[in-house]
Design a binder for these strands. Structure first.
Lengths: 187, 187
DNA sequence: CCGGTCGGCTAATGGCATTAGCTTTATGGC
DNA sequence: GCCATAAAGCTAATGCCATTAGCCGACCGG
């Protein structure tokens, strides 16, 4: 077997660079092959098809986010943990908007596994509010919806008005924290 | 001029039916042309290109959502208005998941205009919390992020766990209401 | 030294968007 | 009622992309 230098991992690396530069729509097999110095059909020796490459890329991105999120939450709990988590999430989005835009939310094995890490991190952070099991799941979903929604809208340029986005996100953060805490008091 | 029966409006109608049936990726000029009984190049006499068609479709969808949202909010205020708004939003998503998935959040004139309607509806609902101007904008963005995030994740099947989604959304609704009310009390 | 397999290649197909340029057809002014 | 015109259809052609089939050479273990 020739050139051992091209693994699926390496291909994902190249794919990420392409996404960073040209956005999600630039991620084509032709482009990846080109940047690897081979022709596109050769890629099929490493990756099943474009859909799988997208899934692998997404899994990598989710893992990156989970890394950031996990680090942010470390040593904090309750309000501070949620604030740090939300802040870390948005920081990732601002640092790598194209990657975030390329994220595909599929019930695909690799991505799902990485997503599981996030669920664990989030439910752990929520345990400080006295939430467990189902309650923690529902709260984690709410948190994720808020973060993801803001991220998607910001990345896609959907916030047209001139108001400062940092302020908006701070408000969203405060709302989530207040809301979660109220739940804690309620139950 | 022959066949006056095919306007941009009619094309969007056909496009929506295609999206409903096959999801966003099924929306191709070839498919639309086929369902209109013409060949694809003829479409360019009515629509600039695929991107514009997508934008027109999105504008229509945003208007549909604004209709539902506006109706839901009518005659209610504060908590009740927010609850009704969030409920209407998700009902639309559940009724037309493919349409929601096809939504493109572009800073494009038609969509932006429809989006303006939504902003108006939302800020009006938030005025009951004593929010005006910038404060209302930030709050509207937060609300939109929460609703959109949940919608996107639900539509894309990103919520893998068996927990009931209705319950999750109710929690998110409560969190938003509690958070917004706390803001009201704060200022 | 040799055979298998891995990883590259070329060729070919089919779907799609898009452009150019031709033809038909309805209609509005005469 | 007729005809010029412009709208709205068509065919042909291009180019990009994913994907499949089948070929070939190079590395590795024995």
């Amino acid at each position: 077997m020739p050139r051992g230098t091209l693994s699926a991992e390496a291909i994902v690396d190249l794919a990420l660079r392409i996404v960073d530069k040209g956005g999600p729509s630039a991620l084509t097999l032709a482009a990846v092959a080109g940047s690897a110095g081979i022709v596109s059909p050769s890629l099929y020796k490493h990756v099943r098809n474009l859909a799988e490459l997208r899934a692998l890329v997404s899994a990598r991105i989710v893992n990156e986010i989970a890394d950031q999120a996990g680090e942010a939450v470390l040593g904090r709990s309750a309000d501070e943990a949620v604030r740090a988590l939300m802040s870390a999430w948005r920081q990732y989005v601002r640092r790598c908007p194209n990657r975030y835009a390329a994220l595909i939310q599929s019930p695909e094995p690799h991505t799902a596994e990485a997503g599981q890490r996030l669920v664990t991190i989030m439910t752990a952070a929520l345990r400080a509010y006295g939430m467990r099991d189902s309650a923690a799941i529902h709260a984690a979903r709410s948190l994720r919806a808020a973060m993801h929604g803001f991220a998607v809208l910001e990345v896609e340029g959907a916030f047209g008005l001139p108001e400062d986005l940092d302020e908006s996100y701070e408000l969203l953060t405060d709302i989530m924290i207040t809301g979660l805490r109220a739940r804690q008091d309620a139950t």
